[in-house]
Measured scan of single mutants.
Amino acid sequence: VTTYKLVINGKTLKGETTTKAVDAETAEKAFKQYANDNGVDAVWTYDDATKTFTVTEMV
Score class of each variant (00 low, 15 high):
residue 24 A to V: 13
residue 15 G to Y: 15
residue 31 F to P: 00
residue 31 F to W: 02
residue 41 D to K: 09
residue 26 T to W: 05
residue 10 G to T: 15
residue 16 E to S: 08
residue 34 Y to N: 03
residue 57 E to T: 05
residue 52 T to S: 02
residue 39 G to N: 11
residue 5 K to R: 12
residue 39 G to I: 14
residue 6 L to V: 03
residue 12 T to C: 15
residue 18 T to M: 09
residue 27 A to R: 01
residue 13 L to K: 05
residue 24 A to Y: 14
residue 10 G to E: 03
residue 59 V to P: 11
residue 1 V to I: 10
residue 37 D to Y: 12
residue 42 A to V: 09
residue 27 A to I: 02
residue 39 G to V: 14
residue 52 T to M: 02
residue 50 T to I: 05
residue 7 V to D: 02
residue 5 K to Y: 10
residue 24 A to K: 14
residue 18 T to Q: 09
residue 18 T to R: 05
residue 29 K to A: 09
residue 4 Y to R: 00
residue 19 T to M: 14
residue 18 T to D: 04
residue 25 E to I: 10
residue 48 D to Y: 05
residue 34 Y to H: 04
residue 57 E to C: 11
residue 59 V to E: 14
residue 28 E to R: 12
residue 54 T to R: 04
residue 11 K to Y: 11
residue 19 T to F: 13
residue 46 Y to L: 00
residue 23 D to W: 02
residue 2 T to A: 09
residue 46 Y to E: 00
residue 53 F to P: 00
residue 19 T to A: 07
residue 28 E to Q: 11
residue 46 Y to P: 00
residue 52 T to V: 05
residue 55 V to T: 04
residue 28 E to C: 14
residue 28 E to N: 03
residue 46 Y to K: 00
residue 35 A to M: 15
residue 22 V to Q: 09
residue 7 V to T: 04
residue 1 V to M: 13
residue 49 A to N: 10
residue 39 G to Q: 07
residue 38 N to Y: 15
residue 59 V to G: 12
residue 31 F to T: 01
residue 17 T to Y: 15
residue 5 K to G: 02
residue 52 T to D: 00
residue 11 K to E: 12
residue 16 E to A: 06
residue 13 L to Y: 15
residue 34 Y to C: 08
residue 41 D to L: 11
residue 38 N to L: 15
residue 52 T to F: 01
residue 39 G to Y: 13
residue 7 V to E: 03
residue 30 A to F: 14
residue 21 A to R: 02
residue 2 T to W: 11
residue 27 A to Y: 01
residue 46 Y to D: 00
residue 10 G to N: 07
residue 15 G to A: 14
residue 15 G to T: 14
residue 56 T to R: 04
residue 36 N to Y: 14
residue 36 N to F: 15
residue 36 N to D: 13
residue 50 T to L: 06
residue 51 K to H: 11
residue 25 E to F: 08
residue 14 K to S: 13
residue 32 K to F: 05
residue 25 E to A: 13
residue 36 N to R: 14
residue 52 T to E: 03
residue 49 A to W: 07
residue 32 K to T: 05
residue 35 A to H: 09
residue 5 K to I: 09
residue 12 T to K: 06
residue 26 T to E: 11
residue 44 W to A: 01
residue 11 K to C: 13
residue 42 A to N: 07
residue 24 A to R: 14
residue 23 D to I: 02
residue 3 T to A: 04
residue 41 D to Y: 12
residue 15 G to K: 14
residue 14 K to C: 15
residue 21 A to V: 03
residue 41 D to E: 13
residue 3 T to C: 13
residue 10 G to R: 07
residue 12 T to E: 11
residue 46 Y to T: 00
residue 1 V to F: 12
residue 6 L to Q: 01
residue 3 T to F: 05
residue 57 E to A: 05
residue 52 T to Q: 03
residue 58 M to S: 10
residue 36 N to P: 08
residue 39 G to L: 15
residue 48 D to T: 06
residue 34 Y to W: 14
residue 4 Y to Q: 01
residue 29 K to F: 07
residue 26 T to M: 09
residue 26 T to C: 06
residue 12 T to I: 12
residue 6 L to H: 01
residue 49 A to M: 11
residue 7 V to G: 01
residue 31 F to D: 01
residue 15 G to L: 15
residue 52 T to I: 04
residue 9 N to A: 06
residue 55 V to A: 15
residue 6 L to M: 06
residue 10 G to Q: 06
residue 14 K to L: 11
residue 10 G to F: 15
residue 36 N to K: 15
residue 2 T to D: 10
residue 46 Y to H: 00
residue 55 V to E: 01
residue 37 D to S: 10
residue 17 T to G: 05
residue 13 L to C: 15
residue 48 D to V: 06
residue 13 L to T: 07
residue 59 V to M: 10
residue 16 E to P: 06
residue 26 T to A: 11
residue 48 D to F: 06
residue 12 T to Y: 15
residue 51 K to M: 06
residue 12 T to H: 14
residue 28 E to A: 12
residue 39 G to F: 15
residue 42 A to L: 13
residue 59 V to A: 11
residue 7 V to W: 03
residue 59 V to H: 10
residue 1 V to E: 11
residue 53 F to G: 00
residue 43 V to P: 04
residue 7 V to Q: 04
residue 44 W to Q: 00
residue 1 V to G: 09
residue 20 K to M: 12
residue 46 Y to S: 00
residue 37 D to G: 08
residue 16 E to F: 11
residue 19 T to E: 04
residue 40 V to S: 04
residue 9 N to I: 14
residue 42 A to P: 09
residue 25 E to V: 10
